[in-house]
Nucleic acid binder design. Structure first.
Lengths: 190, 190
DNA sequence: GCTTTTGCACTGACCGGTCAGTTCAAAAAG
DNA sequence: CTTTTTGAACTGACCGGTCAGTGCAAAAGC
């Protein structure tokens, strides 16, 4: 089953990247962790870059899917809260992925910067939608740039979630979500 | 002049790490960029790790110095605004350093995680001081955990500043500062 | 039914290049 | 004289990528 092998390689890479990052990761280790031979990686992906590229899309697709599932026509602030919760849950499940994101997203011109920029757009556009709804309701403070705010929001979630995982794993997800929401509520007071 | 050589090596490493990260950096390249011989690196720092360790302290000392210089007995929110501005200016001047910070800080257990955790504490404690002043004035929303909020604040600044440098360099520092402050003002309404 | 062929998925030993780290004699700096 | 720097040669581990070969299930040939 080919899809199964690719999936196994993705999951193995995510497991390892948590501690070593993408650059410090060897194809030998990934293959060993996935329980396949090194050649299999090259058979399936052509190169280490190919594997990483696939992994990035895999991860972002998962996250985007969950973020979109959290959308409803409820109050935009509630939707954002649900999205924050979703993101925290996702990052707790796949700490290696967010690790990669923060390590590589702002590297210029990193190897995967192109792919990552696209993926950043995908996630941010989902957040933007909710901010636009807030704006339409006239609930955004004056002068707030939606693109900047959306990027900031996404980055904040990422960083807070990582900090939670690494420096305060005893906190509950609800506590951390509250911490983020306190910041966000300043955006759209009801 | 030993301090001069070390400084040159720090600055060279920062210049290069912007695009390649710490792991992908070769000692040969660093030495060449600094205009010194490879042997000089080992004479001064003993190893690549020694150089990186020194660099991390060097960078955090610079940032901490500036953050403390921004402290006054003005309104805490104004002090925080000044600190945000200071941080943005610092990151704009040393993009490589914040690059390193986000890439390595939340890696467990990365090579430099120990040193970085200490440095994280140093920066965050400075932010905490201002949040505590807000709390004493009874201006913090109920249930805000100061350590969590401080960590979130620091991370947010870091990420927003990087995103600014990479994806929106045409924005002015004032614009970006405003974007961060909109988030923060939700914390401490006057 | 049986044998042969095909092609996909995978294997793992191997190769060539790269890079951290070492060494050292000699020059420069102070 | 002492400290610092130079620069080049060398070592050895490590790693991305290659490739001839294996296993096997399904199709083709008879």
């Amino acid at each position: 089953m080919s899809g199964g092998t690719k999936q196994k390689l993705f999951e193995a890479t995510l497991r390892l990247s948590k501690s070593r990052g993408l650059v410090g990761l060897t194809v030998d280790d990934i293959a060993a962790e996935a329980g396949v031979a090194k050649g299999t990686v090259y058979y399936n992906f052509g190169s280490k870059d190919g594997l990483v590229d696939g992994l990035l899309r895999y991860g972002v697709d998962m996250l985007a899917l969950r973020l979109r599932a959290a959308v409803s026509d409820a109050d935009p602030l509630d939707v954002i809260e649900a999205q924050v919760d979703t993101t925290l849950e996702f990052i707790a499940s796949y700490p290696g992925f967010s690790q990669i994101l923060v390590s590589e997203l702002w590297r210029t011109p990193g190897q995967w910067h192109g792919t990552l920029s696209l993926l950043r757009e995908e996630i941010i556009s989902i957040v933007k939608t909710q901010l636009s709804r807030l704006e339409e309701a006239g609930r955004l403070p004056e002068g707030v740039q939606i693109p900047t705010a959306a990027a900031g929001l996404f980055g904040t979630m990422l960083v807070v979630a990582l900090d939670w995982q690494v420096f305060g794993p005893q906190r509950t997800r609800a506590e951390v979500r509250e911490a983020v929401m306190v910041l966000i509520r300043g955006l759209g007071r009801r």
